[in-house]
């Protein structure tokens, strides 16, 4: 966290984990949302998005790992605002990988999450209005499509995640 020089006492920070079978996709997603992005030598991506002077969102792209079994979800999960799993929508192998990861996460964490299938500029035969607001899989989990060639599209994904959080406000 010190990598982006955050003064924790003056800022409120929401932390979002970004995972999935492709580091370049994690990077692209974070880059679309953040004004500051740092790529570390151990293949992880950190991004900071400043909402106001006091409120910031931190995105951690945790790289490509085999089902992330060695990732410290037990330590990270209680603190994180939510998670985003990105993958190539058209790639069956990537989907299977995300599906397995999702089943593991469902047992490990109780956070809000969104699975994002990247359509990467390939024209979809279905109308955008059908998928742009996502589909709920449970009260805390959504599936959405994302066009990684369109920068504004990533914000839509973030909106779905934030909406899910707001829906659970007490």
């Amino acid at each position: 966290m010190s990598i982006l020089s955050v003064q924790k006492d003056t800022h409120r920070i929401g932390e979002i984990i970004v995972a999935g079978p492709s580091l370049p996709l994690q990077k692209r997603f974070i880059t679309h949302l953040c004004n500051e992005v740092v790529i570390t030598s151990n293949s992880t991506v950190f991004g900071r998005s400043k909402i106001t002077d006091e409120l910031q969102l931190f995105f951690y792209g945790i790289g490509e790992k085999d089902l992330y079994m060695d990732f410290a979800w037990d330590l990270v999960a209680p603190k994180m605002l939510g998670y985003v799993l990105v993958y190539n929508w058209f790639e069956g192998k990537d989907f299977t990988s995300v599906q397995q990861l999702l089943n593991i996460l469902s047992n490990l964490v109780d956070s809000h999450g969104i699975v994002v299938g990247d359509i990467a500029g390939i024209p979809m035969t279905i109308d955008r209005s059908v998928y742009e607001s996502g589909f709920s899989l449970s009260s805390k989990l959504y599936l959405s499509l994302w066009d990684s060639t369109d920068k504004t599209n990533a914000k839509n994904v973030l909106k779905i995640l934030i909406d899910s959080l707001i829906n659970h406000l007490e």
Partner: peptide
């Protein structure tokens, strides 16, 4: 029903 299975059925639907 796990989320991965739901997601698979939804993917096929779309």
């Amino acid at each position: 029903m796990n989320s991965g299975t739901q997601m698979q059925f939804l993917r096929y639907l779309l």
